[in-house]
Design a protein around this nucleic acid. Structure first.
Lengths: 269, 269
DNA sequence: GACGGACTGTCGTCCAGACGACAGTCCTAG
DNA sequence: CTAGGACTGTCGTCTGGACGACAGTCCGTC
């Protein structure tokens, strides 16, 4: 838990397009329709957007960072089913029903950033009125579901090492930068692995020159190398994400845009 | 693979309500709107409704049985992320987008039954025109997502034994009967476990008097006992399903109706 | 009634990874 | 500059479960 919290600064989103890619993909008309209802709010590491059983009040279009969609077991352990970044939004349940009671717990995993917040009420109204928004978010939801399913299979069949690499690659995609904060303990929890195992794996990856790790900070050194040692699950999930942007995607510098969308085939050539 | 296949008998659904519970929950007006487009088709064990990457042609409202929503790994193994029964429909992707390309593989797991088939086109049109249908299926989708998330966590943290029990209980709920066909090998694959392990577990459960197993046929003998040895994941998933029926649910004899819906709290008292 | 196929029980062997423990290292607040 | 807290490296020990193999059992078909 952070010791000193910056004062919560909420501001109306009035300037140009936010960083969030879903919002960026909206046609002007639809975005302008939404804009009066958006508020830019700061988001902190370890922030919990919603817990299981809570009624959702807002959805959040992230402008950066990585958020984990998790399940909490009665035991207390939490396990990640999907990650949400600046190409998505938190509060998918609100897409599905009006009285959106969440079944999952959404925890901000990586760093401080901000998000465009929208009340569930305004969100639902916009969904009803704007078919383009509905279509776009429906596609995103499918991506999330795809990720969940892949994660389920990956968690069962692949080693902690492979799962670590998957997580790092996906986080890297979301972050659009080489290094970000992430402790072994956090990663272990998300993967349902033990901390010592993750530490050992991280050590190996570092020794192999693929990443650098130092006290809560990872640096992706050799992305291609990481991809080479990852299981196919990363490629599959990535392919889903690539399908979000029809044709060319927004003009961005990240590795996210390295390849053409390929929805039919999960494994890249 | 079955040796002798009955001829495919498609018939228009014109009589009363089908067994499928989602359809049963629709108000008359909405159901009548849908009815001309429904066809009752037979469904066989091991039937594959759709594979990953395929464009969906139809959605299927099952009238019985258990269908597994699975992910196929490049390795060839398949792992289940969620089960669909007569309280759901196959083809959830079609809820999310028009050009519904599936990301998952849906395989009929338990027995021969039939289903109400609806073309994706008619389905999408109905969704657009009938808000009640949209609401109902949106809720169902949330249930499926909840099940996926719980399964992800369960697969990581719980023993093969607990997962077996979870599967059997959910299948029992879907089947509304004590016994049904299911081989150890199938169950093992769904759980991502090895066949010998599942056999061993099944042996234990049988020795404990909870189930009877004989050559591809399980009988649930002591349901309460099974619930007692299950992990909380079953209860959590079950609670999601119970939320589908607002207030009282359809008049059925299954154990499905044993308890009042309780959405807020995953664990039953 | 015999045969082949499908399903189940069981037995070694082997290993990934859990779990607990503890020491070392870095970072930051005071 | 220092102390405390957070993070990481590593080491035993122990076990669930994978994997391969093979024999036994039931069932439907010829």
């Amino acid at each position: 838990m952070p010791k000193k919290r910056r004062p919560l600064s909420v501001r109306q989103s009035t300037e140009g397009r936010p960083q969030n890619r879903l919002l960026a993909l909206l046609p002007d008309e639809d975005f302008h329709h939404l804009r009066p209802h958006l508020q830019t709010v700061p988001v902190r590491r370890t922030q919990v957007f919603h817990k299981a059983g809570e009624r959702l009040r807002h959805v959040y279009f992230l402008n950066g960072g990585v958020c984990s969609l998790t399940t909490r077991l009665s035991h207390g352990a939490i396990v990640e089913a999907a990650t949400i970044g600046d190409s998505g939004f938190v509060g998918i349940e609100a897409f599905l029903r009006d009285d959106a009671v969440s079944l999952s717990e959404a925890i901000m995993q990586v760093p401080d950033t901000d998000a465009e917040r929208l009340s569930v009420k305004a969100f639902r109204r916009a969904l009803a009125e704007r078919p383009v928004l509905r279509t776009l978010l429906g596609r995103y939801l499918q991506v999330v579901i795809g990720q969940m399913m892949q994660t389920t299979a990956c968690n069962v069949h692949h080693s902690v090492r492979e799962r670590c690499v998957r997580w790092l690659l996906i986080a890297h995609d979301h972050m659009h930068r080489q290094n970000f904060t992430l402790s072994h303990a956090f990663l272990a929890e998300m993967l349902g692995a033990s901390r010592p195992t993750v530490s050992a794996v991280a050590g190996q990856l570092q020794a192999a020159g693929l990443i650098r790790y130092s006290h809560g900070r990872v640096t992706v050194v050799d992305r291609t190398g990481l991809e080479a040692v990852s299981c196919d699950c990363y490629a599959a999930i990535r392919a889903h994400f690539d399908c979000l942007q029809p044709g060319r995607q927004a003009n961005r510098t990240s590795s996210y845009a390295q390849e053409p969308p390929n929805c039919r085939q999960a494994h890249r050539p």
